[in-house]
Amino acid sequence: MPLLRNNAFVVDTWTHLGLEDKLPDGGNVVLPFQRLKNEWESLAKFPGQLGVLLNNSDHAGELEHFLPHLALVILPFPAFTDGRAYSIARQIRLAGYRAELRATGNLLPDQFQYMQQVGFTSFDVSDRFPLSMWQSAAKQMSLAYQRGLYRRTGETEVWTERHMEAAPWEEQPHAG
C-alpha cells in the first residue's frame, strides 16, 4: 500500500508492531494503543521514535498525556462511511499534537480534502487510485466556511476572510 504525504507517494519508514511482536533496539516503531498503555514504563525509555495506532472506538482523552512523546498517530477508517476518526483527529489536534497524523483503512480521494482539513498529514492509500487522482482531489474545494481547520495555500476560510478585522482564531494550527 502506498503512503501518501505532501501530495507524493513516499516510503513508510515506520515499523508496525502488533501486541506480541518483539520491540527492536531502536528506529521508528508504531504500537497499538493497548500496548502503549500497558508497557509505558519500559517504552518511555525507548531510544527511537514512537507512534500509536488507535481504534476509532478509543477515547482521544486517554491518549492526551502520551501525545508529547509521540511522533506518529494512526487513526483507522474501517469503512469509508465510518467518520469517527475525523472527530478524533480534531480532538488530538486541539490537544496540541503537532507531529504526523496518519489515516489508514478504506480511504477515497473524495474524502482526502476533509481529512487534511481536520489535521491528517499522511495517508495509507490503496493502489486503485493513481497519484494524479489524489492530487486533483486535494484541491476540489478552495473554500470552507468552518474556522480553525488545517488549510493549505490557496484554501480560504470564508468567515475569517469576511471579517478580517476580527480576532484571529487563536490556535490557527496551520497558518503557514
Binding site: G83, Y114, Q146, L149
Partner: peptide, 13 residues
C-alpha cells in the same frame, strides 16, 4: 447552513 456546508468533520456521521 454555511457552517454545516461540507463540514469536514461531520460529513460521515
Amino acid at each position: 447552513r454555511q457552517w454545516s456546508s461540507l463540514h469536514p468533520e461531520f460529513s460521515y456521521l
